[in-house]
Design a protein around this nucleic acid. Structure first.
Length: 293
DNA sequence: CACTTGACCTGTCCGC
DNA sequence: TGCGGACAGGTCAAGT
């Protein structure tokens, strides 16, 4: 579910809410969602004060005062929802525009209780997401972090970097390459489809058949679209919510994602849904012609 | 080796 | 209204 813009929106929201709060208790309802041993969790997390919130690719990093960090991946259906104590003046526990009702609910996997009575809920319907505790100095050596490619939205991630990395997979479809987090970190299915549409590239085109000029259009489009989405609070298709349980507004601006059957905003031909690299894929066949040899 | 497919889970939606 | 099947935004491991 969440891709980089959604993860970044959650991170930014939590960055306004969590720092300086101290964790009093951790409740793990679904062990696979937070597989560290409970004594490790207790020594590294209970009593820890939240220092700062970071992100690498789609992984959220919560740095704690105990020289430990929590790494969190939301995968498809994960949510991190913060709640003030019940009865707080800001509405009974949660904002009125929250899509999420009373918590915990049946998808709640982990609960962090802070000493001031506020709580952070990790909800995850499909149980693919996870929380891992590790020493802060070790996190970037973890394979799951060290294998990630450069951040697509980083100021230093130039078009030349993009071109070199994408061209490492000449025979692969361009969509599978931009979804590969070891090539570049952050692109998921929604923004892959939107970026390829904007650049006029058919998603199954092998990289070697795409001109560098078109790849430049893709690089520009992906960054522009993902920045726009962050400014709109991300994309909510069904599950995604921000740290206060609110939906994102980007999908109203999407040109192809989840728009099969609707007319293309560019040429009027119907948007089609196909399958590329095992993923549901949305295209305009006229604006994104299939490459031929 | 490069690339594709299946598995991990639960819920929802669609057709019969 | 019930039931089976396909599908869902991510990532590995296993397979070709």
């Amino acid at each position: 579910m969440p891709e980089l813009p959604e993860v970044e929106t959650v991170r930014a929201g939590l960055a306004c809410l969590l720092p300086n709060r101290t964790i009093a208790k951790v409740t793990v309802d679904t062990p696979r969602s937070f597989p560290n041993d409970s004594d490790v969790v207790n020594s590294g997390v209970v009593g820890a004060r939240v220092e700062s919130l970071g992100r690498r690719g789609k992984i959220i990093i919560i740095d704690l005062s105990t020289s430990h960090s929590l790494l969190i991946h939301l995968k498809m259906t994960g949510q991190l929802v913060f709640r003030e104590p019940d009865g707080e003046s800001f509405g009974a526990g949660h904002p009125t525009d929250s899509l999420i009702g009373d918590l915990p609910d049946k998808s709640t996997r982990v609960i962090f209780d802070f000493v001031d009575g506020s709580r952070l809920f990790f909800n995850d319907q499909r149980k693919f997401g996870w929380i891992k505790l590790m020493r802060s100095e070790d996190i970037f050596d973890e394979p799951l972090m060290s294998k990630l490619g450069p951040e697509i939205l980083s100021d230093d991630f130039s078009f030349d970097d993009f071109l070199v990395r994408v061209r490492r997979r000449p025979r692969s479809s361009i969509k599978s390459v931009i979804l590969d987090q070891s090539i570049l970190a952050g692109v998921g299915n929604i923004y892959a489809d939107e970026g390829l549409f904007s650049a006029g590239i058919h998603p199954s085109t092998p990289v070697e058949m795409i001109s560098s000029a078109k790849l430049r259009r893709l690089y520009v489009a992906l960054r522009k679209i993902m920045k726009l989405s962050i400014s709109l609070g991300g994309s909510t298709d069904r599950n995604y919510v921000d740290a206060l349980g609110r939906k994102g507004n980007y999908l109203a601006f999407a040109k192809v994602f989840r728009r099969e059957g609707q007319p293309c905003s560019n040429c009027g031909a119907p948007i089609e849904k196909i399958r590329v690299a095992g993923r549901g894929t949305h295209i305009c066949k006229k604006c994104q012609p299939e490459a031929r040899q």
